[in-house]
């Protein structure tokens, strides 16, 4: 008996939009968390160092190959709550069904805001898709500006 990852009921209606021919896409689970570089640059979030530390995503090598993407090429990570463009990196030890983004504005562009009535949004375990893109990665200020109405 194999347990599939649990998926929140309300995600059932989630419709993956990318149907463009020739674009390979994987379905995966987003996890965001601290990293030491993200932590070390926490007090300098306007710097290139913080951008380098927080604006990327990690997949395992197999996933990256399946996408036809090489290291540092941009991918679009999308969830029911938004999408973000990030350069891809390899974490060889990641399992197949996980995309990792360091905690920070880029991860939080697509995490699940629902607190399930207990105060805490869903920063981990969010169903996501990853696909190659030629779109650029937004800087911190550019990303924040997208929230202005």
């Amino acid at each position: 008996m194999t347990h599939k990852p649990f998926i929140d009921i309300r995600i059932v209606t989630y419709n993956i939009k990318s149907t463009v021919k020739g674009v390979r896409m994987i379905e995966t689970i987003l996890i965001s968390a601290r990293t030491i570089d993200q932590g070390a640059t926490l007090e300098e979030k306007t710097s290139q160092a913080y951008f380098d530390a927080a604006a990327y995503c990690e997949l395992n090598e197999g996933n990256l190959e399946a996408l036809g993407v090489s290291v540092d090429q941009n991918v679009k990570v999308a969830t029911a709550h938004g999408m973000v463009v990030l350069p891809a990196k390899i974490d060889a030890r990641l399992p197949d069904d996980i995309v990792f983004i360091p905690m920070g504005p880029w991860a939080n562009a697509i995490v699940d805001p629902d607190t399930c009535g207990c105060g805490m949004p869903g920063f981990k375990g969010v169903p996501a898709t990853v696909e190659a893109t030629t779109d650029p990665v937004l800087s911190m200020k550019e990303l924040m500006a997208t929230y202005m109405e």
């Binding site: 007090e43 300098e44 979030k45 939080n108 805001p113 949004p121 920063f123 924040m144 109405e149």
Partner: peptide
């Protein structure tokens, strides 16, 4: 730094109301 560490929906609302920051460093 809620700007960096809140989900997008919360940050969107913060862009619509008066906000005051007390901090040592510039950040989102």
């Amino acid at each position: 730094d809620p700007g960096a560490h809140f989900p997008q929906e919360s940050v969107k609302h913060l862009y619509t109301i008066p906000a005051i920051q007390v901090d040592g460093y510039a950040n989102p």
